[in-house]
């Protein structure tokens, strides 16, 4: 049976995330203690796995690196149909950049052992680097195909997928085991069902920390991150707004005049 690992990140809820602003006075980062949700694109990655499971059968392990509350996100994945959930959580993991995150996830993938397919979202909504999938692939010595929008052939050991490129796609053949990152076009993720929640009640999630992964403290979290944030700046626009006043008709006329002046309308 196909053994799939899906990497799922707990991210700040999108509505709440927008209120996160750099403080214009202190130039410090906002507090990040807001509700978490499954990174939207990771739902697409999980959906790929769930459809494969419903098709020819698969065993799905979800892994997530994050603080203890991210355990709820892993549980939600179990309720959606994943078989096993692993939370990678340790104070030493905090402050990781994409490199250290990928390295930590890679250690977990290796510890899990036999695997055919690793699925990631194309990007996380908060980090949004797109780097974790490819870097993880290097660390576990698997090849990768990024931006997959369609899994064309998924039987046997050689899969064929369509991956986005500028104005089109490429058709790529991949010999398993391979890492794939999935775009929002791959499918429409399912929502939680009542029976799923009931069934998942019995499923337990596993938590692995620094010692379980057998990694040095220096290679994970902030210490293991080659990049650091050196400065935060608050950007102010240099433009000054001239308001167009009057009735609706007058405003339309004035705007058209401005557009004509600028050479657009004629």
């Amino acid at each position: 049976m196909l053994r799939i690992i899906v990497c799922v990140k707990a991210v700040p809820e999108s509505k709440a995330a927008e209120s996160l602003k750099i403080d214009p006075v202190t130039k410090s980062l906002p507090r990040l203690d807001i509700p978490l949700e499954i990174n939207p694109l990771d739902r697409n990655a999980l959906e790929v796995a769930l459809q494969l499971k419903e098709g020819s059968g698969a065993h799905i392990t979800v892994i997530s690196m994050g603080p203890p509350p991210a355990g709820d996100i892993v549980k939600e994945c179990l309720a959606l149909g994943a078989d096993k959930g692993i939370l990678l959580s340790d104070p030493a993991f905090a402050g990781a950049d994409a490199y250290a995150t990928a390295l930590t996830l890679a250690k977990a993938v290796k510890k899990i052992g036999e695997v055919d397919v690793v699925l990631c979202g194309r990007a996380s909504s908060d980090g949004a680097t797109e780097w974790v999938g490819p870097e993880l692939a290097v660390f576990v010595d698997m090849p990768i195909v990024t931006m997959v929008r369609e899994f064309v052939k998924t039987d046997g050991k050689n899969w064929v997928v369509k991956a986005d490129i500028e104005n089109g796609y490429r058709l790529v053949q991949a010999a398993l085991p391979t890492v794939f990152t999935v775009t929002q076009d791959a499918n429409t993720p399912r929502t939680l069902s009542f029976s799923g929640i009931i069934k998942s009640r019995k499923k337990e999630i596993t938590t692995w920390g620094l010692n379980d992964l057998g990694v040095l403290e220096d290679s994970v979290g902030l210490k293991g991150s080659p990049t650091i944030v050196s400065k935060l700046a608050y950007v102010e626009s240099k433009r000054e707004c001239e308001f167009i006043d009057g009735t609706l008709e007058e405003k339309v006329d004035q705007l058209i005049n401005k557009l004509v002046e600028a050479g657009v309308a004629s």
């Binding site: 994409a98 490199y99 680097t129 797109e130 780097w131 490819p134 870097e135 990768i144 080659p226």
Partner: peptide
């Protein structure tokens, strides 16, 4: 966007996006 993280991970260095 695919190649950059592969290069960075292989060389063991950082990468900004």
């Amino acid at each position: 966007r695919e190649l950059a993280p592969l290069i960075a991970a292989k060389l063991g260095t950082g990468l900004s996006a």
